[in-house]
Amino acid sequence: MSAVIDENLGSLADVTDGAISIKDVVKIYDPDGAAVMAVDHCSIEIPAGEICMIVGPSGCGKTTLLNAIAGFHGITSGSIHLDGELLCGPEKPQAEPGSDRIVVFQNGALFPWKTNLDNVAFGPMMAGKLSKEEIYDKARSMMADAGLSGNENNYPGEISSGLRRRVEIVRALMNDPKVLLFDEPYRALDSLTKSVMHEALLEIYYRNKVTIFFITHDLEEAIFLGHRLIIMSSRPCKPKKIVEVDIPHPRDYSVLTSPRFRELMNEAKDVVHEEATKAFEAGEKEG
């Protein structure tokens, strides 16, 4: 992690793809007539290559928004565009899932029945555009770049959860996605492993700049990783406050003890706390 670091690593200037535009999105769940409004006229603009951290209390509707972008379910009204192209909107309530937007799941979704290498090669193998040799060569070299060599022929169940998360990110990057969608991927990890994962994620990000839409309810994680924090209101979810994290990238763990970090932490904390209290009083369960 002490590789030569160039000043440009944090800059978004050279990233052209992956701008997400969320406009007036509303999502109402309607199981047997009991309407639940999960997202309420939510608008967010995410520039290409940004690490955008979505922070909000449990059950506020963050996953709902992420699933709408990924195309796992439709929206009630509003629209979502990726690089100016419509993903979902008035005529097309549900986006088509695709390899330009790849989700890294909360509990991890590496296929346990495929070796790590087969997992990494999965996307291109399904697309069938390259030959098997080309795909596996690329998979091996991407795993090596991410410090994963030696784990190719193991199954996901045989490696540590930290390594599994890394394999999953590499599997996504194999498809040259424009956007990575993270749904609280490090929630279940202890704080030690988490800190290692954060640095590894940034390291990967500096090498492959893609837009990152990252849901979390851990403020420290949010400020450490993000260019920007979007703090959501309690359900129904919409942006409540935006915090620009002006700590320059590349970052490492020394950032955590810097005075600016503390300031940003305090700035965000009050809003988050207020929303969490509202959510708690409304009796929200973990979503």
Partner: peptide, 28 residues
Amino acid sequence: DESYSRAARCLGASRWQTFVHVVIPGAM
């Protein structure tokens, strides 16, 4: 787990490919 078939769809697998690569081994 639904995440597996969602992951497969994200990675560009068709419905049939999902059946072969996720449903069959997952049910094994």
